[in-house]
Design a binder for these strands. Structure first.
Lengths: 222, 222
DNA sequence: TAGATTGTTAATCGATTAACAATC
DNA sequence: TAGATTGTTAATCGATTAACAATC
């Protein structure tokens, strides 16, 4: 809107790298806490210090979203919260389906951070007939055979894969075929997806191995 | 050992970036699968294609670990597995303590990827007296008061924080005070730790928001 | 006003890719 | 040998930081 006409077809969000988007999530969480505390303004230096990010980095990240800062003053948390939420797509709810009804699924269902940002898990599926019908929180475990129908009914756009690695690719294929647009994958498997389906992978073993490497290197450099 | 004397104080591992270490974990997992299938040699092109990494990237990453490739032939999975495991510190077991006895803890206790790489969860703690004494898999939930003693007894070097965000910093402080050298943090909180304690954070909300951003940008560019 | 703080540029740093001589 | 493939260099790409004029 405030963009000059010559920039009409430029898309600010498309310039945001994965790293910047990650930090925007962190800024958002911190800003929400500051707003709840009644803080009226915050500087890039303060916000960065709270999160372990440089002040220049904070300003650069936020400048991608527009002229949101006030020289000599800082940023207004309330204003920033609105802009970041819109940028991240958090200005409306997301219907999410969860595949796999194990302990990780239980943990994710209870995870408040998802609910708070408008992610609604609308169905849980499992391939194991013994788990189908089981009650998980507010939901009843549904058979995989009703995946496509359930996704269509809820107009779910996101899916979370929490099944063992060998099953992950076939679940991903089913999700893609059912029209899911983004997958958060917890299975330790590399997934192949059509280009219109976005993928974010959380690989727990990789993260723990990263930690082992850091400690090992520190204790026993060689 | 095979290093010339002039490089005696250079530390190859210290040159490895976090990104490279992450990929080494992925290479390791794939190589273990290849070895199990009886594959005798693999090229950088093949390994990269399996994991979505360029061939040049694979060669560069592996070259940090030494001259492990054979021109015209490729790499020997068995040889590479040994070197990567040593580099990542996976050539011995790690005793790990788990703080928080909720659903995420249950999921982590059952996670095969940890056990397979030699991570042994030796104790589970919870601040809630109602949870203390509860059986989780092979372990009994222990009160926080015995944290330091238990860590010392098992000589645990790694800790996993799976408690709510408000409790995370105080748990981290206790772990650091008890001599833990590395923390894998699942709480959505920024932790402050002394420099000798390494930190890897897995932030589930950030990852799901990353996914929402990608999908939103794709569906509704503006 | 003086002081604080932004947005942005240029410099720096780091990671990836392309290309190819060397090797088997 | 011819073909395949490595290790490494130089080129490219991208992200971070330092610095400071502009602004309130």
């Amino acid at each position: 809107m405030a963009q000059p006409a010559t920039m009409a077809h430029s898309n600010p969000a498309s310039r945001l790298s994965r790293l910047t988007v990650n930090r925007l999530s962190l800024y958002l969480r911190r800003l929400e806490a500051l707003a709840a505390e009644g803080v009226k303004t915050v500087s890039s230096g303060q916000l960065g210090e709270d999160l372990g990010v440089s002040d220049a980095q904070v300003r650069k990240d936020l400048a991608y979203l527009g002229h949101l800062g006030y020289p000599g003053v800082g940023y207004y948390p309330q204003e920033l919260i609105g802009v970041i939420r819109r940028t991240l797509g958090l200005d409306h709810d997301w219907a999410v389906v969860l595949i796999g009804a194990g302990n990780l699924a239980r943990a994710l269902l209870k995870y408040r951070g998802f609910q708070q940002q408008g992610f609604r898990i609308v169905a849980v599926f499992d391939a194991d007939p013994n788990k189908v019908g089981e009650r998980l929180d507010e939901l009843t475990v549904t058979p995989m055979s009703s995946l496509a129908e359930t996704i269509a009914r809820h107009q779910a756009q996101l899916g979370i894969i929490a099944v063992p690695a060998p099953a992950a690719q076939s679940v991903a294929d089913e999700l893609a075929a059912a029209g899911i647009r983004g997958i958060l994958n917890f299975a330790p498997a590399v997934l192949r997806l059509p280009p219109q389906v976005h993928l974010v992978a959380v690989d727990l073993a990789v993260q723990l191995e990263q930690l082992a490497f850091l400690v090992r290197q520190d204790l026993d450099p060689q």
